[in-house]
């Protein structure tokens, strides 16, 4: 078990590093015009928000209840109301925890 666990960890670490470095090195080879940089900015924002959206609605590939989506919705409202990050995070966790305490999954 230990041997294969170490191999598994090494594979995950190496694959992850390879993904990170291949993007970084490919990017480092080029000169970025201001326009490309802006486009990359939009792409990065798109990716981050997509991560947030999928992590909100899914656990892996399956939908798993409403408590977390409600908590994140509350966090979105808090963000729009210009609450600082700490307030946003506490709001998300508190609403989610509260709804679960009340029996929502």
């Amino acid at each position: 078990m230990h041997g294969s666990l170490i191999v598994g960890i090494a594979i995950l670490a190496l694959c992850t590093y390879a993904l990170r470095m291949s993007g970084t090195l490919l990017g480092a080879k080029r000169e970025f015009s201001e326009e490309t940089e802006k486009l990359l900015g939009v792409g990065t924002t798109t990716l981050l928000v997509a991560v947030a959206a999928t992590a909100t609605l899914f656990d892996g590939n399956s939908v798993d209840g409403w408590a977390r989506p409600m908590g994140v919705l509350a966090a979105l409202v808090a963000t729009v109301c210009r609450m600082p990050i700490i307030g946003v995070v506490v709001t998300a966790a508190a609403v989610t925890a509260g709804l679960r305490l009340a029996g929502m999954s």
């Binding site: 294969s4 960890i9 995950l12 992850t16 490919l26 990359l40």
Partner: peptide, 27 residues
């Protein structure tokens, strides 16, 4: 098996490739 688990979990990090491109633009 950990080796199989590693390969499927690594897929989650495909977005890091794009992020790599993005950080290279300012580093």
């Amino acid at each position: 098996p950990p080796i199989l688990a590693a390969l499927t979990s690594a897929l989650v990090n495909t977005r890091c490739f794009v992020f790599g491109f993005s950080i290279a633009s300012f580093l």
